[in-house]
Amino acid sequence: MKQIFVWGVLLVAMQIPLSVDAAPIKVITTTEDLAAITREIGGDRVQVDFIAKGVQDPHFIEAKPSYMLKLSRAKLFVQVGLGLEAEWIPSLLMGARNVKILRGRNGHVDASEGVALLEVPRERIDRSAGDVHGQGNPHYWLDPLNGKQIARNIAAGLKRIDPEGKEQYDQNVIQFSRRLDAAMARWSEAMKPFKEKKVITYHNSWPYFLRRFGLMAVGYVEPKPGIPPSSSHLIQLIERIKEEKVKIIIVEPYFNSKTPQFVARKSGAKVVVLPPSVSKATGMTDYFQLFDHIVATLTTALE
């Protein structure tokens, strides 16, 4: 009897239409940055949701069943790739049972496609080097010009599943790239006086940004990516900061700032908390506001 009931529920459930053509296209991105760019490109043709909030460390997201539910309904899935989401995305995708958004299918976008990557290992690496990413540093969205390639990748994905919107998506990519160029001129101008300035970052998550604006990371609070600092490493770091006259230590809001604060006190540098992602919760709702905020914070701190 119970089994008949269960099968009955299943059969009824199958009758529920899963999609209506006129409805906006459901896009799920792994991060809030990708969601922001998808909104720029998709406009009113898409309905965008994301998994990792901008204030969260995208390496460490729980594979909650509610995310599987979101993914099960998505038409398009966009991820940063390069192993950034490797800990939680595979089990979420398996649980979602949505074949259309798996790698290699039309609904899957790896936003790193075609991006000029940094720190691609030239030799065989192992985990004695910490949490290194074998395909290159995954924090590429922090170079604003990479935003253009991300946008093109998202547009390509949208065109695959919604060919009717092709013109609109292409137009939006052009618009977005133009606006990025204009903003880039503004950010470059603001950052110009600080070219060649040396900084320390907590994790190796800023190489794309630093390279774009001519800054240099001369050390990291972590001795190796993902490995907490030992005391000897901190001593050497403090010495290095003094030697190189480094003024700032860049720390993401989600890292424990106790150690960077200690290094700052001992070395005379100061801790600058920089958000690496678009985040509604902190008032930065689009890709432009993110860099406006980063550039404003950095220029104030470096003056």
Partner: peptide, 21 residues
């Protein structure tokens, strides 16, 4: 002597299209 190599993180910095293994 609980030493860790300093700045071991500064790995090869190559600009290239990713060559996926």
């Amino acid at each position: 002597g609980i030493a860790t190599p300093v700045f071991a993180q500064e790995g090869p910095l190559i600009r290239s299209q990713s060559k996926r293994p």
